[in-house]
Nucleic acid binder design. Sequence first.
DNA 1: CGGATTCTTGACAGAGCTCAATTAGTGTGG
DNA 2: CCACACTAATTGAGCTCTGTCAAGAATCCG
Lengths: 226, 226
Amino acid sequence: MKTLRLTSTDRSVLLDSRFFARLPQPTAEAILEGAIVSTHEEHDILFRQDDPIDHVFFVLSGLVRLYRLGKDGREADIAVLPKGEIFGANAMFLEHRATANAQAAEALLVARFESRKLRQLAAENTDVAQALIELLCRHGKMTEDCLAEDRLLTAPQRVASYILSHCPDGLSSFSFRLPFQKNVLAGKLGLAPEALSRAFSTLRQSGVTVKGRLIEIRDRQALERF
Amino acid sequence: MKTLRLTSTDRSVLLDSRFFARLPQPTAEAILEGAIVSTHEEHDILFRQDDPIDHVFFVLSGLVRLYRLGKDGREADIAVLPKGEIFGANAMFLEHRATANAQAAEALLVARFESRKLRQLAAENTDVAQALIELLCRHGKMTEDCLAEDRLLTAPQRVASYILSHCPDGLSSFSFRLPFQKNVLAGKLGLAPEALSRAFSTLRQSGVTVKGRLIEIRDRQALERF
DNA sequence: CGGATTCTTGACAGAGCTCAATTAGTGTGG
DNA sequence: CCACACTAATTGAGCTCTGTCAAGAATCCG
């Protein structure tokens, strides 16, 4: 891990992100003030569940995996966060302790802000509070979606749903590149890697072709029916 | 469904709840202003997923079940909310549409507030915003817990975990009454009712006795090891 | 072109769902 | 207070899904 200062491209990633974009420029700048940037290699741990943390994190590039550990050492992903996402914000209002482990799922660049300061700002400035509320709602909904999918869908259905979430409206045939290793996707969907493989096999008969990270969908309707 | 005005006991349930208790009295009163109370029978639907909703709800007594529907009609519980809990707040910041179905899991009394007004208040008053933030964090964490338990624990382990969450610290032997039907508990834990039954059977050998809704635990440590 | 991951496939076992049949529990009215 | 009816809960049997372990294929990378 190396720590750096904010570069100008970092600044623009930050300011263009969903969270900061809705804030008045000066407010956003106030939060960025004093931010620290750090790099991490794949598999590095940023923090562990129950660690006291006094920062909020922002993914500048790469991928972060949030997960919990079972007694037997098995891991359960809570979320997988790409560039532009914020994490560790919950902790700010929950005894300042992490609710999950955070790990770099690939080479990673994160910015971090003092949570004390951010919390202070949120208490004084309704714009900041508003932005936080929307962030939390969005994350809450994503976790709910995840829970509902786990409980309602089989492995192939979950994969189909994931693929469809990447399909632009209206197209009935399209293709895209997985934004990360199949390993990571499996975790995100709550599957063993083998189960993901098998799910792709099953979907082949519905017109899904997988070559490396490239996914091709011949017939969108077939997937939706699945 | 019958609609009523706030009684004085309703007021005290509201003001004693986690959300309102942290607000200055006048602020709390401002939110309560214009609240509508309604009664619902078990199985009544309050709203459905994707319905436009312009109210935030508060459970005065009884039980609400939030769930999503699968294509095949199966139901997946997202949350089960007892007296004192708020729901429908997410929707306020997400296109004003419900993210789940809400159903009375038993005879129910709810208060509802105009979400437009509450949102307005949150935008003007940082205390309200703060209370909302904490609410969302708490709910987010609960959903995360649920997701992690689903992915990490077997049925008996989930039941053991639920039982332990009702055990006051330090006691190694205790008993309590389930706060709702086994049916509802099964849903909350993401299990079929039969699986819950079998889980209780399994736990019998670890010192758990079930008689109707009464749960007796002989040896807390045995449960924790499970 | 090795060499090391990463991914896929097969075989097996365990967990939990579904359906069906009992049993327990609850409430109602005579 | 009891008998009856209805709902809720348990138990059994069969089956499906997915996790695990092990081996082989593909892919990536220097």
